[in-house]
C-alpha cells in the first residue's frame, strides 16, 4: 500500500473532486441517485461497485462527458458544468467503453491529444516519447491503434490522458484486460504521480487491487454511495471484498445447483 503521501495536500481545504447531489435518469431507470462525495487532493481513490451500480455514469458526469439531471461536480473548486473548459484543463480522463481514433498510429493519437489541448509541439513530442517508453509501447509507436491488443489500447488511452500533466486523473476500469506486467507498470506510474501530489480516481471490480493500491475508497451500489472514506475506515477490520459483499448484499446464494456436483 502507498503510505508516503504528502500530508498537507490531504488536509487541503479544496478537494480535488467534489460531487454534489449528482443524479441521472435514463428513461424510467434511475442510474445515479444523488451522489455527493469528496475526493481529497493527493489521494489514490478507488470507486468500487457491482455491475450497473452507476460508476461509469457518475464518473462521466464528473468529467463533463454526460450532463447530469441534478447536481454538479467541482474539480479543485472549478464547477465542471459552469466552466467546462477550465475544469477540463485540470483533469485527464480514461473513459470506459468509448472508441479511440484508432486509424491513427499510437504516437499520432497521443500527439493529437496533446495538440488538441493547445500544447507546444516540442513539449508534446518529448512527452510522447517518454510516455511510450514508460508504458512499454515504443516498439509499437508506429502501429495503427486499430491493430493494438486490448491491453495496449488501454495503455495508449492512458497515455492520451496523461500528456498534459493533469492534477486529477479519472480512470474508469484502467486495468481491464491489461496483463499483470503492464498493470504493475501502470501502478508504478500512478503511485509516483500520487506521491508527487496528483490525485487519482480509479473505478474497478477487483477489490484486492483497490485494497492494495488505494488509500481511499467509496462503495457505490444502485446509484448511491454506501460507504466512503479511507480504506481502513471502510473495510473496518475485514477484507475489502468481504465488507463489500456485506454492504452490497447478495452473495449468500451458494445453495442450489446441487446437480452441478452430480456430473
Amino acid at each position: 500500500m502507498n503510505v508516503q503521501l504528502p500530508g498537507p495536500s490531504l488536509n487541503s481545504p479544496v478537494p480535488a473532486l467534489a460531487l454534489r447531489g449528482l443524479a441521472k435518469r435514463f428513461g424510467g431507470k434511475i442510474a445515479v441517485d444523488g451522489i455527493s462525495l469528496d475526493v481529497p487532493a493527493g489521494s489514490f481513490y478507488g470507486v468500487v461497485g457491482p455491475n450497473g451500480a452507476g460508476k461509469t455514469t457518475t464518473l462521466s458526469m464528473a468529467t463533463g462527458l454526460l450532463r447530469p439531471d441534478f447536481g454538479t461536480a467541482y474539480i479543485h473548486g472549478v464547477d465542471v458544468w459552469a466552466k467546462p473548459l477550465e475544469a477540463k484543463k485540470l483533469m485527464g480522463i480514461l473513459p470506459d467503453g468509448v472508441r479511440l481514433f484508432d486509424r491513427l498510429t499510437g504516437e499520432q493519437l497521443v500527439t493529437y491529444a496533446g495538440l488538441l489541448r493547445g500544447m507546444d509541439r516540442d513539449v508534446v513530442a518529448q512527452r510522447v516519447g517518454e510516455l511510450m517508453a514508460a508504458l512499454d509501447l515504443s516498439g509499437d509507436a508506429g502501429t495503427l491503434v486499430v491493430d493494438y491488443s486490448a491491453g495496449m489500447t488501454k495503455k495508449i488511452a492512458l497515455a492520451s490522458a496523461l500528456i498534459h500533466a493533469p492534477r486529477l486523473l479519472v480512470l474508469d476500469e484502467p486495468f481491464e484486460s491489461v496483463d499483470p506486467v503492464s498493470a504493475a507498470n501502470i501502478r508504478g506510474i500512478l503511485d509516483n504521480y500520487v506521491a508527487s501530489g496528483g490525485t487519482v480516481i480509479v473505478s474497478s471490480h477487483v477489490m484486492d487491487l483497490v485494497q492494495r493500491m488505494c488509500d481511499h475508497v467509496a462503495v457505490v451500489a444502485a446509484g448511491r454511495v454506501l460507504a466512503a472514506g479511507t480504506v481502513e475506515e471502510v473495510r473496518d477490520g475485514a477484507t475489502l471484498e468481504d465488507r463489500f459483499v456485506q454492504l452490497v448484499g447478495g452473495g449468500n446464494q451458494t445453495g442450489g445447483l446441487e446437480w452441478l456436483r452430480t456430473f
Binding site: E107, Y112, S138, G139, A141, G142
Partner: peptide, 17 residues
C-alpha cells in the same frame, strides 16, 4: 510492431488545435 518516429500530417500542419 512498427516503431514510431513518423508523425505524418501531425508534423506538417500547424501545432494548434
Amino acid at each position: 510492431g512498427k516503431r514510431g518516429g513518423k508523425l505524418g500530417l501531425f508534423g506538417l500542419l500547424p501545432a494548434t488545435p
